[in-house]
Design a protein around this nucleic acid. Structure first.
Lengths: 211, 211
DNA sequence: CGCTTGTCACTTGTATACATATCTTACGAA
DNA sequence: TTCGTAAGATATGTATACAAGTGACAAGCG
């Protein structure tokens, strides 16, 4: 289940802590300190930090030390725009490439959507998989995973501050999925852009209120 | 000028050798061997290999050893499609976002295009920068750089086998740039897709003839 | 003859010692 | 008081020793 290699464990742990907000932007990530915290040597810590840097979760600070990445509003705008455009692209491709069988399967899972909070996570996962597999392009799928990981902390933060946003986000996802199932790629792409624009606006307002 | 850190030098050297074709897909990259070749220890070699893996230039083989990444025709198709779509996206954004000043400057450099082989490299660089800066999105720019690096070996290989392809590629680039300058985003995006599709066809035919 | 299994060689994973660079801080002179 | 410089501390960069895992090959058994 869990990876054997120590470097993988450190990477997973740090990634989870950053995404969960336990490690906040700007927090220092000294190799020696982390090595002591995980009771390991600096070598696997270095590997984990380098991978996190490649994923954009951490960056180099003074003394070449790693720190949790700090996102300016402009960087956040770029990230959400990129995510929206790539997802729109994949949605369009999925709409025209998914097989009838895959669409039918997706329709079934959506009908089973119960509507509670747990159901939201399920719908989200279905949504993500529909784009990943439906677009039929492993490179784009990898980029999508990457952008999703990088934006996850802020997308989650939306729902912590306003529970209503979860409902509207949920409706938007359903609409996009239905457009995909109707093989209307342009509509799916357009809805996706609107969806990400709304999410960005919510996040920007949130960080403007709480610096 | 050159980076001071040994890991950076190793990374740059290996990247260059892979791109130049001196290291061919499937070639083993043992840490000990490379350490000896560069007269350094395994530590910076490991960092360089991990970065190359994150960039998709190398992958894990048997015994968790790194090998130069082997691209199947399907992976190549995904890569070129992704590159074409992202560049099309950036071309569309650039067409609508570039300032009149930037467009005028770009027009001037294109008019100065001399038409020889050296000019092709210049035009290519202008083209790349126009997309990078014109789209005004650092995240998309980073993804574009990444995809360009990953596809560079094969895009270069086109011209090694058929010099004529360089001329047609050159014409296609010019047409896309003119569409961008005319602020016709849809046309720029469409031309870009055609351009990448043609490149992919050339590359696939090439690797089919020479396995 | 084929399959299994055990050993061996070689690789990567980890720990740690040492080198080097940079930031901080203290001290002195203008 | 302030600026500059030098020394010291602390972090990362590198080298190397040791541990552990895996594939290959061969020998023995069915």
């Amino acid at each position: 289940m869990t990876a054997k290699r120590s470097a993988d464990q450190i990477h997973a742990a740090l990634s989870a802590q950053i995404v969960a907000g336990q490690l906040r932007p700007g927090d220092p990530l000294g190799e020696t300190v982390l090595a002591g915290r995980f009771s390991l040597s600096r070598t696997p810590v270095r590997e984990a930090l380098q991978r996190l840097a490649a994923e954009g979760l951490v960056e180099r600070g003074p003394r070449r030390a790693f720190v949790v990445r700090q996102m300016t509003p402009e960087a956040l705008r770029d990230l959400f725009e990129a995510l929206g455009e790539i997802e729109a692209l994949c949605a369009g491709l999925a709409a025209q490439r998914m097989t009838a069988i895959a669409r039918a399967e997706l329709a079934r899972t959506i009908d089973q959507d119960s509507g509670d909070h747990a159901g939201y996570a399920v719908l989200n996962a279905q949504f993500h998989d529909a784009l990943r597999h439906g677009a039929g392009n492993r490179v784009l799928a990898g980029m999508l995973d990457d952008l999703n990981r990088r934006s996850l902390p802020w997308r989650n933060a939306q729902f912590q501050t306003s529970a209503r946003r979860m409902e509207s986000s949920r409706r938007e996802h359903r609409a996009i999925l239905q457009a995909i199932m109707a093989q209307d790629g342009d509509r799916a792409a357009g809805l996706m852009r609107d969806h990400m624009a709304t999410s960005l606006a919510v996040v920007l307002r949130m960080i403007a209120e709480r610096p």
